[in-house]
């Protein structure tokens, strides 16, 4: 039994023993969830890889050897330097080589991953907030509101989400004035991917809400006069969150791939703010002339990121929901 050292020891009667509630952190590390995590090599590796990639994206400005978007730091003579080989003219050497404009591929990947992850996370958060809100309302209020929301969801589900995202991107691009298009592209992308992905969240939350709604604690909250909004947000929401977490992780992998696909197709991140998809698009142009590294390294990074997040999501689904195993 751990005792607080600041408290002088008291005579050990069973009544006086200071029994502290275990802290939340302690509960987490001693709980089933962490135990399952420790026992699964796939979970540990995919978590480590995800964490490494996310951290290197966050600290990109510190880790990158050059700032690829600062024209002053670039030397055109360094263009097309192969990986780990000194450049023929300048003698500079780069880990992963350089692209046509002499930008260090390693640095562009770090900055590109930043854009990819930012868009992915923001899009999933957006989809999550929208989906949870609509799902709660749909499940709790029921009736016509429910019908309208869920019918909309059904209709949207009949179209592949990448197509929905493209359409939203196209419409939003048309609405923004030409001079702001590049600036707004990232936000439009988040909006497009987020709007194409809310249905999953709404369906799951609605289903869970329908179950929770009939339980006694909700009836009790209603009886003491809490408002519907408070019941939804404070009482029901905490009880329907665990499946949401699983969907969010899997959605993140899908959102990252969706972003990369859109950017690859040229309807996503602008060349001034390249994501991994944009880098692959650029790299594809040099595939035939033998400069394979401009394409290869961003592609491998994207694959690793998507695969790690995906595996993490799969494991999370099994760990949080034993029924699905």
């Amino acid at each position: 039994m751990a005792q607080d050292p600041a408290v002088p020891p008291k005579p050990a009667t069973p009544v006086d023993l200071p029994v502290r509630d275990p802290s939340r952190l302690q509960l987490f590390f001693e709980g089933d969830f962490f135990y399952a995590f420790k026992r699964s090599p796939v979970a540990i590796v995919s978590f480590a890889v995800t964490a490494l990639l996310v951290l290197s994206a966050i600290f990109a400005p510190l880790l990158a050897t050059t700032n690829p978007f600062d024209p002053a730091s670039l030397n055109l003579m360094n263009g097309f330097t192969p990986p780990m080989e000194p450049n023929a003219f300048t003698g500079d050497s780069f880990w992963l080589g350089t692209d046509d404009q002499g930008r260090d591929v390693f640095s562009t990947i770090l900055y590109g991953m930043r854009v990819s992850l930012f868009v992915g996370v923001a899009a999933v958060l957006f989809a999550m907030v929208l989906g949870i809100t609509l799902g709660l309302i749909s499940g709790y209020v029921g009736g016509w509101t429910d019908t309208i929301i869920m019918r909309t969801a059904d209709v949207q589900l009949t179209f592949p989400s990448i197509l929905v995202a493209m359409l939203i991107f196209g419409i939003a691009k048309g609405v923004t004035p030409v001079e702001y298009r590049d600036q707004m592209a990232i936000w439009v992308l988040i909006l497009a991917i987020g709007l194409s992905d809310w249905v999953q969240f709404a369906r799951v939350v609605r289903g869970a809400t329908l179950v929770e709604k009939s339980k006694d604690y909700v009836a009790a909250a209603r009886l003491i006069g809490r408002r519907p909004w408070a019941i939804m947000m404070k009482h029901i929401l905490p009880n329907v969150l665990s499946p949401v977490l699983v969907i969010a992780t899997i959605s993140l992998a899908l959102a990252i791939i969706a972003e990369a696909t859109l950017s690859f197709l040229g309807v996503g991140a602008p060349p001034t703010q390249p994501s991994l998809g944009t880098l692959i698009r650029i790299g594809q142009g040099f595939l035939f002339s033998g400069e394979w590294w401009i394409l290869f390294f961003p592609a491998v990074t994207l694959l690793t990121l998507a695969l790690a997040v995906n595996l993490l999501g799969d494991w999370l689904r099994d760990a949080l929901n034993p029924r699905l195993r």
């Binding site: 990369a260 696909t261 197709l265 594809q284 595939l287 035939f288 592609a299 694959l303 998507a306």
Partner: peptide, 24 residues
């Protein structure tokens, strides 16, 4: 888990660039 466009690029690299069997 492979995105479609990467599969395409991979096939192009293998069968068009390296082997030269099929048009890209």
């Amino acid at each position: 888990s492979l995105p479609t466009f990467l599969i395409g690029i991979l096939l192009i690299y293998l069968f068009s660039v390296e082997l030269g069997w099929l048009p890209s």
